[in-house]
Amino acid sequence: MRAITYDRFGPAADVLKLDDIPAPVAAPGEVLVRLHVSGVNPSDIRARAGGRPGVTEPPFPKIIPHSDGAGVIEAVGDGVPSNRVGERVWIWNGQWQRAFGTAAEYIVLPAEQAVALPDHVSFEQGAVLGIPGLTACHAVLGGGPVEGQTVLVSGGAGTVGRLAIQVAAASGARVLSTVRGEKAAATAKAAGADEVFDYTDERLADRILETTGGRTIDRIVEVEFGKNVETNTRIISERGTIAAFGSAKDMTPVLPFYPLMFKAITIDLVLVYILSDAERRTTLANLTDLLDRYALSFQISDILPLEDCAKAHDMIAGGHRAGSVLLKI
């Protein structure tokens, strides 16, 4: 089968190559998926570049990158119902703690990691569900229903942020968002944000509280935890939650401990790769419900052929995109 592989860390163009390797075979409890699309995420770029803390060399002799994708089940292993053959599916954790991910014609993985894709959802959209979709859904709904609450989504024009706005709005919350620039503000508004704020505003906390009439925020979905912790501490409600899925601009933040403690704030660090089984089931059910209700739309920036994988990595690393970057297989 055709696959993108690498065997050492380094720049995308130097280490990623189009390879021809044997197609895998489904073992007991597994499914073989013929992939149509592979989703590319920032975490894939960090993994290929050797940017994960404490990892100094690739964990496997040969790696096929990417955790997200969508396709059709072509074969099943023992113990998996045969009627799953022909099923359209999307993938989660394709390359998490595994050598071979979705940048290939085929993947085998445990049957539960191939989730039924509704007929009205395209393979391209399905390839966005794994990391971005699950992160957005868990960050908003991981603490339970948000109906009647006020949810702030930081970075609402980003891939996860835009989906989080939709999840919160479809779940009955009042949704606020922070962005930068008029185009990003229009994106967040179109996704369902009731109010949008410029995150570079020095009076951001005041602006938010003025807009809410002094009412504090029940839940914050945060893409830059360290950079925004002071603002969030001011605007979060007592017993509120900051659900953070990133902190790239300040990776070793100093916390205002006592202001957070005296509000009894919950800090939920969202890493969808290692959700508990119960959390995974709940998040998958919530995401499937949102898809069935046609509540989510997807912003896709570029679809490139498999052989342009290095270009896709560089586009994401350089910030040259306005939505998800995908590989057509």
Rank of each mutant, 00 (worst) to 15 (best):
M1R: 00
R2Q: 05
A3H: 02
T5S: 11
G10W: 05
A12I: 04
A12H: 02
K17P: 03
D20I: 07
P22T: 00
V25L: 09
A26I: 11
P28E: 02
E30C: 13
V33D: 01
H36S: 00
V37P: 01
V40N: 01
N41D: 12
P42R: 03
S43M: 11
D44W: 10
R52P: 00
R52L: 15
P59L: 13
P61Y: 06
P61D: 04
I63N: 02
S67H: 12
V72Y: 04
I73F: 11
V80G: 03
P81W: 12
R88T: 00
V89E: 01
N93E: 07
G94A: 03
W96D: 13
W96V: 15
F100I: 06
G101Y: 08
T102I: 11
E105N: 11
Y106K: 00
Y106R: 01
L109C: 09
E112V: 15
V115W: 09
V115Y: 10
H120K: 08
H120P: 01
E124D: 02
Q125V: 01
A127I: 04
P132Y: 05
G133W: 06
L134W: 08
A139S: 13
V140Y: 05
V140G: 07
P145D: 14
V146M: 14
E147N: 14
G148F: 07
L152Q: 05
V153N: 07
R162M: 10
A164H: 01
Q166P: 15
V167C: 12
V167L: 08
V167M: 10
G172P: 09
V175M: 06
S177M: 09
A185K: 12
D194G: 15
V196I: 05
E202L: 11
I208E: 12
T211R: 14
I217P: 03
I217L: 08
R219P: 00
V221C: 08
G226M: 07
K227A: 13
E230L: 15
T231P: 04
N232M: 13
S237P: 08
R239K: 14
G240D: 07
A244F: 00
F245C: 06
F245L: 08
G246A: 04
D250V: 09
M251H: 15
M251R: 15
T252S: 14
V254I: 10
L255Y: 01
F257C: 13
K263T: 01
T266Q: 02
I267G: 01
D268W: 03
V270E: 00
I274T: 14
L275Q: 10
L275V: 05
S276K: 02
S276Q: 05
D277N: 06
E279V: 02
R281G: 15
R281A: 15
T283V: 11
L287Y: 07
T288P: 14
D292R: 15
D292P: 11
R293Q: 15
C309W: 03
A310E: 08
M315I: 14
M315T: 13
I316E: 08
I316K: 06
G318R: 06
G323H: 02
G323K: 03
V325Y: 05
L327E: 00
